[in-house]
Amino acid sequence: MQTAVLFSRVSRHFGNVRAVDEVDLDVAEGEFFAMLGPSGSGKTTCLRLIAGFEQPTAGHIEIFGQTAEGVPPYRRNVNTVFQDYALFPHLSVLDNVAYGLMIRGVGKRERLQEAETALELVRLPGYGDRRPSQLSGGQRQRVALARALVNKPKVLLLDEPLGALDLKLREQMQEELKALQRSLGITFIFVTHDQGEALSMADRVAVFNDGRIMQVGTPQDIYQRPRSRFVADFVGASNVLPPDFSGSRNWASLRPEAIRLVSSDGRPARVLSRNYLGGQTRLSLEAGGQRLNMLAASGDDLPADGANVRIDWSPDDLHLMEDGE
């Protein structure tokens, strides 16, 4: 499969700030790729480097095998869905969607027709005459998507596309985006700070921290086999255990749902507090001077606060990381 986007040792420095620091990356054609990280970790700068809004300080970027450094954004067949949607307030929804085609000199009838088709694709048929200001947040998001997709870009970039939506809408849009990407086969690269979003939507995830990529892999890889304490910590509230606790030379991660309450054997622990989450209850435990989180099915038989319990886990679930002592 062809490589859609390739970074080799790409850096982008702003004065003394290394926003992106020697990043290597390759995204395959047709992939749904997520860039995950806390704010200021360099993920958005990477996106802007692909779009052409930023130029690398050092390193090399290729898009479908063609050199991208020095190419302005308007000459890249790459489109972006902006975090604030950036819909043109002076244009109708239909003219917004048709903007890219208008710039390319597509005739009026043809471009309005294609724009209408794109609006149908994002399930907003007939909304073309409205102004962006008359739409809800979710609808604006769809228009931004249609405006990018109508150009049939080789790569679609999405910058925190669901960040401004409420929870229910966000979950619905996650499904729709995934389905859309599968059916169009366009390479999607999206930036998010929400690990749940990244894990549920992406084929592969790159975890960013301090301008570097900490780990790239499938969601399962990232979640179950974090390579470093940062990834374990950032992706899914794992318990990060120091070497002396895990009894090995390295730090280890242990997912909360992997811990079981047992009646004998295991380790002694004390319940510090309980958090009822609905179907599950999160127990905060203390064992051998180490705080642990565990998830248990909610029920009447859970130990009370302050109770002394015994806990255990299967050795397979204790994942050793690269970080040593």
Partner: peptide, 12 residues
């Protein structure tokens, strides 16, 4: 199809 297939487009 009015849309070019390469990733980098020629200048205007």
């Amino acid at each position: 199809m009015s849309v070019p297939q390469t990733a980098i487009l020629p200048g205007r």
